[in-house]
C-alpha cells in the first residue's frame, strides 16, 4: 500500500504539484487522470525522488520512505516506467531486463529472469536481440517486465500507451492486469480513457497540480469529473474583458 501525503513539487517560483495526497492499494490499478501539464508526471517523479520535493511524505507498506533517494526507493519496492524512455535501445532485451535487477546478486537476477520468461514467452525467444528492434508495444511490455525485475510492491507507470497502436495498448493493458492480479500495486498515469476504464478501479483526478476529485472510475466518469479535467470546466468567463 502506497500513501502519499501533501506532496508538493516546485521548480523555482512555479509550483507544479501542490499538496497532493493519494493512495494506491495492492492488487489494484489506480489511475491518475488529468489534462496535459496538470502535474501527473511530476507527481510520479516526485514520488520516485526524481525531482526535489518541497513537502510531502511517502509511506510504502507502513515504512516511511520519504528521505530515500531513487536507488533506495527501488530497493524498497518502488519501480518506475518513465514516459517515452522505455528501453536502452543498443542493449539486448536480456541486458535491459538485467538492469532492472542491477542491485541484486547473480542468482537472484537469473531467477527473476526465468520468472519473466515464463510470463512472457516471446521475450525469451528474442532475448538476444537489440531492444531497439522491437515495436513500440513490445518495447513497452519489456519496459514493464524490466520494472518487475526489481520485484516491486508498487509499479509507477507514466503513459504506457502513448504512441502505441490500439492492439499494442490492449497487450500492455493485459500485462498490467496480470501484474495487479499477482498482488502488486500499480499507479498509472494515462491519457487513454479506454485503457483507464478497462484497468483502473479507482482514480485521482489532477488539475493545475492539485487533486480535484477521487473515487471509483465509474463514479468519476458519471459525475463528469474526468471530462472536466481533460476538457476543462467552463470556468473562464466567456467575456474576460480583453
Amino acid at each position: 500500500m502506497l500513501t502519499v501525503e501533501d506532496l508538493t513539487v516546485a521548480f523555482g517560483p512555479t509550483t507544479a504539484v501542490r499538496g497532493v495526497t493519494l493512495h494506491a492499494a495492492p492488487g489494484t490499478v489506480t489511475g491518475i487522470l488529468g489534462a496535459n501539464g496538470a502535474g501527473k508526471s511530476t507527481t510520479l517523479l516526485g514520488i520516485h525522488g526524481r525531482v526535489p520535493r518541497s513537502s510531502g511524505r511517502i509511506v510504502l507498506d507502513g515504512q516511511d520512505v520519504t528521505g530515500h533517494d531513487t536507488r533506495a526507493l527501488v530497493r524498497a519496492g518502488l519501480a518506475l516506467c518513465p514516459e517515452n524512455r522505455r528501453l536502452f535501445p543498443g542493449l539486448t532485451i536480456e541486458d535491459n531486463l538485467l538492469v532492472g535487477a542491477h542491485g541484486q546478486g547473480r542468482k537472484v537476477r537469473r531467477q527473476r529472469l526465468r520468472g519473466i520468461y515464463d510470463r512472457f514467452g516471446w521475450v525469451h525467444a528474442r532475448r538476444a536481440e537489440p531492444a531497439g528492434r522491437l515495436s513500440g508495444g513490445q518495447q513497452q511490455t519489456v519496459a514493464i517486465a524490466r520494472a518487475l525485475m526489481s520485484d516491486p510492491r508498487l509499479v509507477l507507470l507514466d503513459e504506457p500507451s502513448s504512441g502505441l497502436s490500439p492492439v499494442a495498448v490492449d497487450e500492455v493493458g493485459e500485462a498490467l492486469r496480470d501484474i495487479a492480479r499477482a498482488g502488486t500495486a500499480v499507479l498509472l498515469v494515462e491519457q487513454n480513457v479506454r485503457l483507464v476504464r478497462q484497468l483502473c478501479s479507482t482514480a485521482w483526478v489532477i488539475a493545475h497540480g492539485e487533486i480535484t476529485a477521487h473515487g471509483t472510475v465509474a463514479e468519476l466518469f458519471a459525475a463528469g469529473a474526468v471530462s472536466d479535467a481533460y476538457l476543462g470546466k467552463a470556468t473562464v468567463p466567456p467575456d474576460s474583458g480583453s
Binding site: R71, F88, G90, V99, G100, H102
Partner: peptide, 23 residues
C-alpha cells in the same frame, strides 16, 4: 558482471539508468 551492465546502461541512457535506481 552487473558492473558492466550498469556501465552499458550509463552509455545508453544515463537518465533512464537513474530512473531505474542505477547509482
Amino acid at each position: 558482471t552487473r558492473f558492466g551492465a550498469r556501465l552499458r546502461a550509463v552509455r545508453e541512457d544515463e537518465d533512464l539508468a537513474q530512473h531505474l535506481g542505477v547509482p
